[in-house]
């Protein structure tokens, strides 16, 4: 099936070449699309110079959701049937692509989430971050009545059906938990598989201390509101 590998990237000039290279080794036939979300560094140039990726540069920073949705729209225009999304910072090891694609290819799920909590031997990360991820995972699971261990993971695979709706409706920042609730409400089948994460090498996380607080409040509000929303697909 026609597959697009979608990599949203913001100021990842130090990582993007390696990320593209890794993905290309695993998926030499798939098109790799880098959506450069208005980076202030050379992310776009570095990505283009690899000659292995198509690059879309947004005129200004839209936030991760806006960048990811751009990729979904590109997939729609170019008739892709499957999109695998992974982060531009290299924390999602390309070796996991096959695993997240599995349930979509077999028709078991419409969207697959690569979870760091379903796979042992993960690199160490901040305790506060892991706790935050667990809490968001817990609430997301309760709301959709399905166990989701890693609701904030951006390593995901979507089939055509999921793409068709996410093209039109997509949250702008911190979209991951909201996306799960939105899709579940609209009766999409969600599945999680374990994937190995990597410790960051270059660049810095988009979450600073102050942003983490904003993130927590925004996610809490978004989750609460999404409980109240009525499904789009009846």
């Amino acid at each position: 099936m026609k597959t697009l590998i979608l990599i949203p990237a913001l100021n990842e000039e130090k990582n993007i070449e390696r990320v593209i290279g890794d993905v290309w080794e695993v998926m030499p036939k798939a098109e790799i699309l880098v959506v450069n979300d208005g980076s202030s560094d050379q992310t776009a140039l570095v990505a283009e110079n690899t000659k292995k990726a198509t690059v879309i540069t947004l005129p200004h920073n839209l936030g991760i959701g806006g960048a990811v949705q751009t990729g979904f729209k590109y997939a729609e225009i170019n008739d892709y049937e499957i999109v695998v999304r992974l982060d531009g910072d290299g924390q999602h090891a390309a070796a996991g692509i096959g695993r997240v694609m599995g349930p979509v290819l077999s028709g078991e799920a419409d969207i697959v989430i690569g979870s760091r909590f379903l796979e042992k031997n993960q690199p160490s990360s901040l305790l506060a971050r892991r706790v935050g991820q667990k809490i968001i995972g817990f609430f997301t699971s309760v709301i959709i009545s399905q166990k989701i261990t890693d609701a904030t993971s951006g390593f995901r695979c979507y089939n055509k059906k999921a793409l068709d709706i996410l093209n039109k409706y997509y949250p702008s920042d911190f979209p991951e938990p909201e996306e799960i609730i939105f899709l579940k409400k609209n009766k999409f089948r969600i599945k999680e598989v374990g994937v190995l994460m990597r410790a960051r090498e270059g660049g810095s996380s988009s979450l600073t201390a102050l942003k983490s607080v904003y993130y927590a409040i925004k996610v809490a509000l978004a989750i609460f509101i999404s409980i109240l929303r009525t499904p789009i697909i009846k």
């Binding site: 198509t54 947004l58 949705q69 751009t70």
Partner: peptide, 17 residues
């Protein structure tokens, strides 16, 4: 407006490509 602005920006990115 910000929703519309987002859509326009995405279109610009896609069209530029």
């Amino acid at each position: 407006l910000s929703e519309k602005n987002k859509n326009v920006s995405q279109e610009i990115g896609l069209l530029n490509l």
